[in-house]
Design a protein around this nucleic acid. Structure first.
Lengths: 201, 201, 201, 201
DNA sequence: TCCTAAGCGAGACGGTACGTCCCGTCTTTAG
DNA sequence: CTAAAGACGGGACGTACCGTCTCGCTTAGGA
């Protein structure tokens, strides 16, 4: 991991930055993360290798920023989960949307690459979680608190843990491809999580 | 990915196979998966590189077999989850044990590496899931069916999905290291999953 | 260079020996000496590698024997240079025939390979010279002695050196391909060698 | 034979070039051409393998350039054969010097290797002949022409062929080590070549 | 308006690992 | 009980990238 003297970011070429994002995402989509190389990104972006090494510490860091860049543009205004007053319906809606996102090819390739790399690189994981994951999860926390306020969720439940009952199963299927990731599955997860596996009295 | 003409596995050197397993696991533990190389494994095992390329298609495949080898020896006789008649206590026991396993250094390094690689390599994922994951998950299915028979779990619940409410959250924390993976967390997950997030009437 | 305990040559398989000769010559002709391998010879001959290592110390040794084998069959009865009484005509005839041989593809490939290897491997060179070269050169010595007896060559001349004035130039052109190796050239060499470069008084 | 896109020779590292020459010549002298490897040269020169593959197509090509490099330095000003007016003495002097050179260990190892490789690799041979051999032979042509002008050599003789009567025999003995290469032999060759093998009238 | 220092494209460099080929030895198996 | 078949430890091959470096060339901004 390089970088000794900090470069002057005010002189940074915006053009190159964008070209690198585009090249990185395109290559990861086309040939996969493993066969994407820094040399390849530089060549495709029409950029010197040093321009990458100057601004990013690793291939994964480039991809994380590129991914964030498109994610931010896509997430215009989505700063809240829907709240129709019906928690179950709202959650089903959200998890179905998440399923669709995880199944979409443009999202899949870079997200998988970043997740895989994070599993094995704690430093990247920290940034991935902070920038990508936590902002999403915070939305659940907020929605669940609202549900507790109106008596649709048990007051004793910790929302930060509760959300993992919803998100964890989806992530599990997506990451390891154990079984298909469908809307039906999303619905089932919401139902089981809300009403429990034990029989109601 | 090599391999053209199939070698004769009856002539295979058992000694080399074991040495390769040992070297692979040792190196992954010592220097991490990424810095573990096939050359390094061969050198450490006192084996020619070709002997590795002859029998395995990739570094990850070597590690998967090595991991399976120790996992099989460790799993002597554990073909069932405990069944004391109290589902909640049994599940807490099992998830706590899983937490301990995921937190143990010897398990962590190879398992993480295999999980990370599986995220990005569907072929490996299929073998990983089939050989490592599914046998474990099947135990949950069996235990949950038992619970349904004695009225401790809702009869309408699909055990294959139900188990993911338990296992998914743990996997999520472990893989991305979002928050600490503790016994308390395991207990909470079991409680929430069994009794639901919605208030009981 | 291997060979510890001598094998029993009486039990040797004649069939394998011939197959190895054929394979070696064929491969050298087809793909060149450098790309001819012992494994390749064995495979082509339908023979185990060990059968080659048992009887020959090196690839070059195999080729030398194979070459000798065909050379012997070709050289049926040619134990003397022609002697018509006219030394110059006889020599021109012989050197022209040598030129033709050196230019013939079937002779060229193995002979070049052996010569090249001999340049760099004194042990092989000794065997190559003894078995291939010297028997040929001895013919020149004999013919030149005859010429001295009848007054067609100076009595003071050492035939062993004299022959090199004839053979050396041809070998030179053949080995390094400096200039074309033609009948005219052979004639010129004979004339210059016999009558000298200095003006006759 | 590699090389796809041409490197920019103006950026070439002179330091590496020289180190590679030195390493190649040293290794060929110490362990012989066959056991000299490109990896070995690179390691000894403190250079990456790619730096060799970038600039040369083969081990032999490296050695040829290295050999030329020292040969050029050694040949400072030797652009003519001696001309005392006595052709025979001059030639004896030159051939004796050639004998000494061929017998000197520092010259022998690389020159043999290049000759051997040239026998079997026409492309290398062409470069070897052009760069090493022909410049030497041209000196003979020039000296023999001079001799013709002053009546010491027959005017009808082709100098390009004549010189091979002198050089061919030496090369023959050197390459195949048939018989010792001595000053006496050199003298005999000059005498026979100049005055012919046939009796003078 | 020029000077100078930075970012930039390009790509050579010392390295490391790749996956392949073949070496020469050793072991197994089928005739 | 011989030899084919071929697995084995080893080492070099030629390639692909790594991360560093040096080269000219813009391209500002301060003098």
């Amino acid at each position: 991991m390089p970088q000794s003297r900090k470069p002057d970011s005010s002189r940074r070429s915006e053009r190159s930055r964008r070209a690198i994002y585009d090249a990185a995402l395109a290559l990861v989509g086309e040939v996969g993360y493993t066969r994407t190389t820094i040399e390849g990104i530089a060549a495709r972006a029409g950029v010197g290798k040093q321009t990458i090494y100057r601004w990013w510490p690793s291939k994964a860091a480039v991809l994380l920023e590129a991914f964030l860049d498109v994610a931010e543009q896509a997430a215009r205004g989505e700063h809240e989960l829907p709240d129709t007053g019906d928690l179950e319906q709202d959650l089903k809606l959200v998890l179905r949307a998440t399923v669709d996102e995880l199944n979409s090819p443009v999202y899949d390739a870079p997200a998988r690459a970043l997740a895989a790399e994070s599993v094995v690189d704690p430093a990247l994981a920290a940034r991935f979680v902070e920038k990508v994951l936590e902002p999403q999860l915070e939305l659940y926390v907020h929605r669940l608190r609202g549900a507790q306020d109106v008596g649709q969720a048990s007051p004793g439940v910790d929302p930060r843990i509760a959300l993992e009952l919803l998100v964890g199963p989806l992530a599990h299927r997506w990451l390891l491809r154990t079984l298909p990731l469908t809307h039906e599955y999303a619905d089932r997860v919401v139902e089981y999580a809300l009403h429990g596996l034990a029989p109601r009295p």
